[in-house]
Nucleic acid binder design. Structure first.
Length: 766
DNA sequence: GTAAGCTGTCATCAG
DNA sequence: GTCTGATGACAGCTT
């Protein structure tokens, strides 16, 4: 039965660790950081608010350690850290909305605005916006110039020509069908998105115009001509700030120094990325052959669960305000509630509109902002709910943010287009969504900067080396000290005198300081001179919660309030049983703290101590308890003791041994819990680190993909048939051969090959 | 007055 | 068989 209980007790803890490892939310931190005193106190000990003074151990506190879980100073420390983090968080949110303004450019119909207005570097939306996007001052422009398309692109009018069967070079380069540029076509998408828009547009500062003009007003600054989103007060600004905050945090987290190259890459992507609204043919020709965008829902869910576990873990250490803003979402939707912005926020609406027309561009257009160019996913994360309304919540959440979706949004969205172009297996198919992973990075950043109770315990570890899962207390410092104390006690014990009348306040104090190590009844027998020789055995140093380092009596003497502290476990002792003769007169109590301590310690005599006195046991309880068996028997043989005395002595020894054993047992139990908690924390930290690394790899992979995509577009765009006309992307596609060569093959053939390659990974998964 | 925590003690088991 | 340590359970005490 006992083994079963032990098994259950330890099993629960181990099960907790396992659950945390497999991603199931088992957040010890939740209980540690939340206001749940029971478990927190089990593990970390009672908070200062709940802490009960160690009345049994006067010297239990302020033993020299800087921060103790029970210390009030620790609370102050946490408070200071929390406030500091909040202040920092406030500073982070003081972000201009420049980038966000650019997000709304795409809503401008016909691109009239972006074409005429000074480019903000983000006028991606308009039909010519793809070219306008890369303003002269933008690194993207440089990349386009390098590709030799910039001039042609700039020549595009603000209003896209109607759709024609023939694709122009610009169309190919843009990577989007002309339908995208058709206002009527995009107007439909806007209508859909308008449903998502709430009072943001209703609060349009330029009312009175038509819906179209309204949209323009939302996008164009009347003074500067710069495209910008409607400045709606209230939560919209907050959302915008939260978006930028997210971007900045991600930027800080991003380990890549890719800023220099990214704009160029992005420009390529902008050209290449197709839109959902594109006709299949146009879309296909722009689809990277490397990307399939097929991602099984199972993997997504699995990854989502992983993220849930880790993000929840980290979220608890993140500034609350930050998390609230980052994941501000209306209740009810589990996904959106936790990991996406509110769909009805203006930014989302705008972005959604943008994405509806140029989904691919929207994924990364945030990169055009110098401040956030290294943080593309952050922007994409905000696009989670922005996928066209015909997408499911889950699909929109994942699809729009998925890297594969960046190139192949249709396949991940409800508007998936079966006529996707030449595709290669998406190497990211089984990987986590980048948006979410970046959020992980964000959270990791917070967790790294933050401070949590576990870290506090780790601080303690620096002072308390008694760690590890080992239950062998004999290896602990305390045990060492105990053994040392025991040996010294046995060797130095001289049985100097009876403890009855020799106990004075000074002697008690001296013994108090000399012993240091604490053993059985050390708190109650210090009155005896011979007991001052060294209480031995167990050193009740509850490493984490109940440190009982009494080596510094000065500290105790400096803590007069401790005089009134103390359990009285002399349960069965009548007041008269206490040796009043040992007690100094009340008047002497005022002479000094030492005397007071002595008086207090007199009262702390244990029951067995009083019994021993009553039975006139000629040696101390310390000896009775701590002497080795041989010495103990030898000691007994030296005296003529009655049977009652012998029985009492044996009882004292037994109880004393058991008392120390119980203390050791409890100490081990607490240490075990602490170590398990520490292990869980370490494992969670490792998990978070691995996920961060995964995010980094994904970023790197995406960069490579973008480069490949850019090259693909460039090569394909330069191809000419025998008549000097460019090949239609709907009819031809480039295929990478195994030997590194690139072949121009019919689209149908490329599609077939792509499907074959797409099936292979699926089969492998099965 | 009650709940919770701490400590001592007992009983029991195992080495 | 004895001793010792470990541990669950309980009681007493204090806050």
């Amino acid at each position: 039965m006992l083994s079963l209980k032990k098994y259950l007790t330890e099993g629960l803890l181990q099960f907790t660790i396992l659950l945390s490892l497999i991603g199931v939310r088992v957040d010890v931190d939740t209980y540690l950081t939340s206001q749940l005193p029971p478990l927190r106190e089990i593990i970390l000990g009672p908070s200062s608010a709940y802490t009960q003074t160690q009345f049994h151990n006067l010297r239990n506190t302020l033993d020299g350690y800087g921060i103790h879980p029970k210390s009030i100073d620790l609370d102050n420390y946490f408070t200071a850290r929390r406030l500091l983090s909040q202040v920092r968080a406030l500073d982070r949110f003081q972000v201009p909305t420049t980038e966000v303004n650019a997000w709304l450019v795409h809503r401008d119909p016909e691109g009239s605005v972006s074409g005429s207005q000074p480019s903000s570097g983000l006028a991606l939306e308009s039909s010519s916006g793809l070219q306008d996007v890369t303003g002269p001052d933008n690194g993207v422009r440089e990349s386009e110039t390098e590709q030799g398309f910039s001039e042609d692109l700039e020549d595009l009018g603000a209003v896209a020509p109607p759709v024609s069967g023939d694709l122009t070079k610009e169309d190919i380069d843009l990577g989007a069908g002309r339908e995208i540029f058709d206002y009527s076509h995009r107007q439909k998408e806007q209508d859909v998105d308008k449903e998502l828009q709430d009072g943001a547009e209703q609060e349009d500062p330029w009312p009175g115009e038509g819906a179209e003009a309204l949209a323009r007003n939302l996008l164009v600054d009347g003074e500067t001509g710069e495209s910008f989103p409607a400045q709606v007060p209230g939560g919209e600004d907050q959302t915008a700030l939260s978006l930028e905050e997210c971007l900045r945090l991600l930027e800080a987290t991003c380990p890549f120094g890719e800023n220099a190259e990214f704009p160029a890459d992005i420009s390529s992507v902008t050209e290449a990325v197709p839109s959902e609204s594109e006709p299949p043919g146009l879309q296909n020709n722009l689809l990277s052959p490397l990307l399939t965008g097929t991602e099984s829902p199972f993997d997504l869910e699995q990854q989502w669960q992983d993220l849930m576990s880790i993000m929840e873990m980290q979220a608890m250490e993140v500034n609350t305000s930050t998390s609230e803003i980052l994941y501000d979402a209306p209740p009810g939707d589990p996904l959106s509630t936790n990991y996406s912005l509110a769909p009805n926020t203006p930014i989302n609406q705008n972005v959604s509109l943008h994405q509806a027309s140029l989904g691919g561009c929207s994924q990364d257009f945030s990169l055009f902002s110098p401040e956030v160019e290294s943080l593309p996913v952050a922007g994409s994360s905000t696009l989670l709910p922005l996928v066209p309304s015909n997408s499911t919540s889950l699909n929109s959440t994942f699809g729009s943010t998925n890297l594969a979706g960046l190139f192949f949004p249709p396949q991940l969205n409800g508007t998936a287009n079966d006529t996707a172009g030449p595709e290669l297996p998406d190497p990211l198919g089984g990987l986590l969504d980048e948006a979410m992973l970046d959020e992980i990075s964000l959270m990791d950043l917070a967790i790294e900067e933050g401070f949590n109770p576990v870290q506090a315990s780790q601080l303690e570890e620096e002072f308390d080396s008694d760690s590890g899962l080992s239950l062998d207390s004999s290896h602990s410092p305390s045990s060492l000290s105990s053994s040392e104390g025991s040996s010294s006690s046995s060797s130095s014990s001289s049985s100097s005198s009876s403890s009855s009348s020799s106990s004075t306040s000074s002697s008690a104090s001296s013994s108090f300081s000399e012993e240091g190590a604490v053993g059985y009844s050390s708190d109650s027998e210090t009155l005896d001179l011979e007991e001052a020789e060294g209480a031995v055995g167990y050193q009740p140093e509850y490493s984490k919660f109940c440190r009982m380092s009494y080596q510094d009596p000065a500290q105790l003497s400096c803590l007069p309030y401790l005089e009134h502290v103390g359990h009285n476990h002399t349960y069965n002792m009548a007041p008269s049983a206490l040796d009043s003769a040992d007690l100094p007169p009340p008047s002497t109590l005022k002479k000094g703290s030492k005397e007071k301590q002595a008086d207090f310690l007199d009262k702390q005599m244990s029951r067995d101590e009083h019994r021993a006195r009553a039975m006139k046991i000629p040696f101390t309880n310390d000896k009775i308890i701590n002497l080795p068996v041989e010495e103990f028997n030898e000691l007994l043989s030296k005296y003529q003791l009655s049977e009652a005395q012998l029985s009492l002595i044996r009882d004292i020894r037994r109880r004393g041994k058991n008392k120390m054993a119980a203390q050791n047992c409890r100490k081990r139990k607490l240490d075990t819990i602490l170590n398990l908690e520490r292990d869980v924390e370490d494992l969670q930290r490792d998990k978070a680190r691995l996920l961060r690394e995964k995010v980094e790899f994904l970023r790197s992979l995406r960069q490579m993909k973008q480069k490949v995509q850019s090259l693909y577009q460039e090569v394909f765009g330069r191809l000419r048939d025998e008549n000097g006309r460019p090949y239609s992307p709907s009819q031809y596609a480039l295929q990478y051969a195994g030997d590194g060569s690139v072949l121009l093959i019919p689209r149908t053939l490329a599609d077939q090959q792509a499907r074959r390659q797409e099936r292979k990974p699926k089969d492998r998964r099965k």
